[in-house]
Design a protein around this nucleic acid. Structure first.
Lengths: 138, 138
DNA sequence: TCCTACATTGGACTTTGTCTAAGTCAAGAA
DNA sequence: TTCTTGACTTAGACAAAGTCCAATGTAGGA
């Protein structure tokens, strides 16, 4: 993740303590925190960090393409640091657990031209839903 | 959509004026209103209808499987009356326009067993994103 | 070291949605 | 037809998630 900080510095980012702790919280490939969770964890490292800064920083990281915004439940958005490897999400309909998954095939290609209505289709987001082993057993 | 009202009555629904106008607003296959939009349009027909009733009615219609809840932008949920025909969505990343689309192939089958992590996968939601002809031209 | 443009802060505000207590009414019973 | 009753609706308070702003602080170049 220090790679990340270097990349961002290269793009003219000021390296503040706040941005560092947000980046640190998002370190790890299989993490899908809400903004509030990021804030809580960041505050463990830097107690005076404000919610507004966390939102700002997350927004900047998203528009720089360093993290992905995921909304799997229509409530709080979640942030996925695994933005450099294309992947989709598998969500437990009961407990909400999220896993990164890699479908086979080219999902974009499955939208035939006559179903594109003149759109320049650029991306596809897929969410699989089902019961995780834990909830299925319960 | 009067079919809908009959079906619901058959399931023990009380047929109130409020439920009738909500159903009427949702009539049409290619409509994707937010709850607030549904409320505004319903209020044109029945001025004293309350927000709570619209939310209640939409929630009931969703759990009866008569309409679909769609969240394409992490903000307000939208309601899609076209719930009886499997389909996915194509969203303009600029203006937010939504179209129903029908991808080819079996999208569920594209998640290989080794990528299911023991989940009982039941459904898949797909959102294609791109520029609509209007925004691409502008 | 100093400057200053950029970053952060806290709190007010907005949007979207939920909950509740009190009043209303659809539809079956008589 | 009128009565009855439990389901439905209402207004407004409340909650969660996110945005905005003016005042203050500071990273990093000169």
């Amino acid at each position: 993740m220090s790679d990340l900080l270097e990349r961002l510095r290269g793009r003219g980012w000021r390296l503040t303590a706040q941005r560092r702790v947000v980046a640190e919280v998002l370190d790890g490939d299989h993490v899908h925190y809400t903004a509030d969770e990021v804030h809580a964890r960041a505050a463990d490292l830097l107690p005076e960090i404000s919610r507004a800064t966390v939102y700002n920083t997350l927004g900047e990281l998203v528009s720089l393409g360093e993290i992905m915004e995921v909304s799997t439940d229509g409530r709080a958005k979640r942030y996925d640091p695994n933005a450099h490897h294309a992947h989709q999400h598998l969500v437990c309909s009961q407990c909400g657990t999220i896993r990164d998954v890699h479908p086979s095939g080219d999902l974009l290609a499955e939208l035939p031209p006559e179903e594109r209505f003149g759109f320049q289709v650029a991306a596809v987001e897929v969410t699989y839903r089902g019961l995780c082993p834990n909830c299925a057993a319960g």
